[in-house]
């Protein structure tokens, strides 16, 4: 399962960032695919990006003069969210892949969560409300509204957009200022933290995760638990990289459907399925199994 997920993540990242010409010349793709959004956090200023970033698209629509409901971006969220939920985060997000790879680096006392997780996990909702939505509607740069999340926080934009573009484009390199170093600092902080903590950006800051998490309860793709075969060994809970209990797996907004619980289950009573809503009942650990 781990290998399969890595292969899917790599193929999807290469496929959605496959415009090699852009990397070589410091330019970005300008074709018609950019009318559509990819499901994961993938900066549209990445030289290889062949489609748009859903959070970038949402902010672009909120940056319009006056207020209009951003139906275009919301449509993508509803479709991807209703079908996949946070499966997108676990399997299809390029920045999630980067954090997964960094977490493989050996480091003492690795953690699944940060201290005060139960408070910090709401950070992603705060980012969504205050930076992506309110920030984009009221913050002004000159005479235009600005995409506040992209400008002040998004590490994906720095990693996939800024670094390759600035490396290959001299005129952009000459315009670097304090803001670039602020974003570079955020990127490095998150990348270094990813070595110790599992996916800190996804767990605490990603507005896309906050949106897809809402769909987890009823999305088509779910992880099913067959209670009849379960011996309550709780191997699934031990394997969960975000420390969820069995009753939270799949339906919790924090579950990224990485499938480690499915792979860890010796009895095969957890499996991916596409049958719509299913809530796992609470299961207590079997005291006979250590």
């Amino acid at each position: 399962m781990k290998k399969l997920r890595l292969i899917v993540q790599l193929i999807f990242t290469i496929f959605t960032n496959g415009y090699a010409y852009g990397f070589l010349n410091g330019k970005i793709y300008q074709g018609s695919f950019k009318y559509a959004c990819v499901p994961g956090l993938n900066c549209y200023s990445c030289p290889g990006a062949i489609a748009s970033c859903p959070i970038g698209a949402l902010q672009a629509l909120l940056n319009q003069r006056g207020f209009k409901i951003p139906f275009g971006a919301l449509g993508f969220f509803f479709i991807f969210g209703s079908i996949f939920g946070r499966f997108v985060c676990g399997w299809l997000c390029p920045f999630g892949l980067v954090q997964d790879l960094l977490h493989k680096i050996p480091f003492p006392n690795k953690r699944k969560r940060l201290p005060m997780h139960n408070i910090l996990k709401y950070g992603k909702y705060a980012v969504l409300i205050f930076l992506v939505c309110i920030g984009s509607m009221i913050l002004f740069g000159g005479f235009a509204k600005i995409p506040a999340f992209c400008k002040y926080l998004c590490p994906s934009g720095t990693l996939f957009g800024a670094i390759p573009l600035i490396s290959a484009n001299e005129s952009l390199r000459s315009q670097i200022g304090g803001l670039f170093f602020w974003k570079l600092g955020i990127l490095f902080f998150i990348l270094i933290l990813s070595i110790k903590v599992y996916r800190p950006f996804c767990q605490y800051l990603c507005p896309l995760g906050a949106i897809y998490g809402w769909f987890n309860r009823f999305s088509l793709v779910q992880i099913y638990h067959e209670k009849e075969q379960c011996i309550s060994c709780m191997a699934c809970e031990k394997a969960c990289p975000v420390a969820l209990s069995l009753s939270e797996i799949s339906t919790s907004p924090e579950c990224i459907r990485c499938g480690r619980c499915v792979a860890a289950c010796g009895k095969g009573c957890l499996h991916f399925s596409g049958r719509g809503n299913f809530v796992i009942e609470k299961v207590e650990k079997n005291p006979d199994i250590r």
């Binding site: 970005i28 900066c43 549209y44 672009a60 600005i146 400008k151 957009g161 952009l172 315009q175 670039f180």
Partner: peptide, 15 residues
Amino acid sequence: IWRKAVMICMECIGI
């Protein structure tokens, strides 16, 4: 969305 996506987003790259 397309117009925004086909031009280099200066905010996204921190410039």
